[in-house]
Structure formats: structure tokens, C-alpha cells
Design a protein around this nucleic acid. Structure first.
Length: 272
DNA sequence: CCCGGAACCTGAAGGC
DNA sequence: TGCCTTCAGGTTCCGG
């Protein structure tokens, strides 16, 4: 499922195909994918616009348009953006198709229909409340400490909260907690300064590693050219049900935190 | 404001 | 073999 490294990879690999191109057609086989405005208005306002910039904020993709509006895309759990041309058959579960002026076609494939398309004038209406970008210089361990201060929710839940840190989801939260040897159920505000420093470093490392491996192909994640990422092969605990800790050999445990599958080593990540 | 749980959605996997 | 139930999780909404 796409988290920061997956969305970053999609942005990088899609960029040469769409930057500077003009949208000439929009098909919506399932109109429910458009959150705002209405599907018909979305179509008419998007057609004719040139894509002048593509960026990422958290797990959102942001396309700047020549009209000064923004096309904001969220892939949620099962969404993928795939490129093709006029000869391409739409992949199964295609929910939206964008035709560009050079014949390139971008397919939004999304089996579970969680994905969202928005066309907005003010991008901050969507991404304005997000927490800091973990790979930018202003994300320091002091900033992390301040955002966890006095929070009583489990650290795993806080790491996955986009208002605390943008871009970290279920998989990379588990990896960062394992790397920093912190139990997922520890209250966020109970972490020591040293633990927060380790966690801060671990978040940056697991995300950078994920990007270096072009994302983790768990579930439906697929790169725009149809190939898979390899980040999941580097995972130490995430989704490694029934396996043992690569550090100490203890069988990994799986618990539910906020109904989310959470993998950890009960020996390396002690409860206190 | 903070926390936890339900809802959205459907393919895959497991149980009987 | 096949039907039924459960699981997967990012975000949003809602109640306490």
C-alpha cells in the first residue's frame, strides 16, 4: 500500500511522461473516485490544462495546472498510476483515464475504490494540516519530541497519524519502531529523549531505504511502468508473519493497534 | 484538543 | 467444490 516512498517513486517515474503535457481527455469509468468538484465539472475544468509541476506532500500527489488549480491524487490502499498509449488496454479496475496531448495515457487503477481525485484552487485546503515532511531538514528530533509531547496514544498510532508526521503508514511505522527498539504500544509521550532521537533517525533511514528500493510491493503497489518495487525484501518485521527476528531470532509477534496489523520483536522492543 | 472505533470498499484467504 | 466469514488499511467522521 502506498506510503511516502511509494508515492515518491510514482512521482519520480511519472514526471517525465506528464510534465509540460496538456490534458486532452478524461474518462471516469467509476465517477465515485472524484471527491470534488462534481465529476462533470472535474472533467471540463481539467481538459485543456497543462501540467506545470508535480510534487508530493505526505502521501498526496500534487499536480500544478496552468489554470493555477491543483489536481490532488491520493492512492489510499490499492491505487496505482500506470502509463500507456492509445494502443493500451485499460487495466482491470481502471477508475479514471487521463489522455495527454502526445498520446500518453495515464490509468488510475484501484481495485478497492478507496482512491481519491480532487481538483482544487487552494492546495492547503487538503494538505495544509499535515505534519512535517520527515525527509526535510526542518524535521529534527526536537520537532518530533514536541509533536509527541504529552500524547497518551500508542506510538504506533501516532506515527501513522498524518497530522503528527506526514507520509508514514503502517509498514514503515513498524520498521522504524523495530530499528529504534521501541514497543509499538508505548505511549507517545512516555518516550525518553534518547528513544526519540533513535526513532527520528530510524524514520529517516527506513523511508530513504524504501525510496532507494523504489517502494514496497505489498498488496497492490506497482510502479507506473508496471514493474514492482523491492523495499519489502528489506523489511525486518513488517508483514513478516510467522518469521523470526533478524537480530535475535525470537519469533515475531503480530498484534492489532487501532485495528492495524502491527509486527514487532517482543525481545528487542520491550514494553518499558 | 485528544483518543478510539466505525465506515468506506472488494479481492484474497481461511473455515466448515 | 462452494458458500460464508474475516481480513487488509488510509482517511474521515463521530461520540465520549
Amino acid at each position: 500500500m502506498p506510503e511516502l516512498p511509494e508515492v515518491e517513486t510514482i512521482k519520480n517515474e511519472l514526471s517525465p511522461y506528464i510534465l509540460g503535457r496538456t490534458v486532452t481527455g478524461v474518462d471516469l469509468p467509476w465517477e465515485g473516485i472524484v471527491r470534488q468538484p462534481s465529476a462533470s465539472e472535474f472533467r471540463s475544468r481539467l481538459i485543456g490544462q497543462k501540467i506545470t509541476k508535480i510534487s508530493r506532500r505526505g502521501k498526496y500527489l500534487i499536480l500544478n495546472l496552468s489554470s493555477s488549480e491543483f489536481l490532488i491524487i491520493h492512492l489510499k490502499m490499492s491505487g496505482a498510476l500506470l502509463f500507456g498509449n492509445e494502443a493500451s488496454e485499460p487495466p482491470k479496475y481502471t477508475r479514471a483515464t487521463f489522455r495527454l496531448d502526445d498520446g500518453t495515457i495515464i490509468f488510475f487503477r484501484d481495485p478497492r475504490k478507496f482512491g481519491v481525485l480532487r481538483l482544487v484552487e487552494d492546495k492547503n485546503s487538503i494538505v495544509g494540516e499535515l505534519g512535517p515532511e520527515p525527509l526535510e531538514a526542518n524535521f529534527t528530533h526536537e520537532v518530533l519530541a514536541q509533536r509527541l509531547h504529552k500524547r497518551t496514544a500508542p506510538i504506533k498510532a501516532l506515527l501513522s497519524d498524518q497530522k503528527v508526521i506526514a507520509g508514514v503508514g503502517n509498514m514503515y511505522a513498524d520498521e522504524a519502531l523495530f530499528a529504534s527498539k521501541i514497543h509499538p504500544l508505548r505511549a507517545g509521550g512516555s518516550l525518553t529523549k534518547d528513544e526519540i532521537k533513535r526513532l527520528h533517525q530510524a524514520i529517516i533511514e527506513v523511508l530513504k531505504s524504501g525510496i532507494g528500493n523504489k517502494g514496497a510491493s505489498i498488496e497492490n503497489y506497482i510502479r507506473p511502468d508496471g514493474t514492482l518495487g523491492t523495499a519489502h525484501t528489506q523489511f525486518k518485521v513488517a508483514h513478516r508473519r510467522g518469521e523470526t527476528c533478524p537480530r535475535c531470532g525470537t519469533p515475531l509477534e503480530r498484534i492489532a493497534v487501532r485495528h492495524r496489523g502491527t509486527y514487532f520483536c517482543p525481545k528487542c522492543q520491550r514494553e518499558r
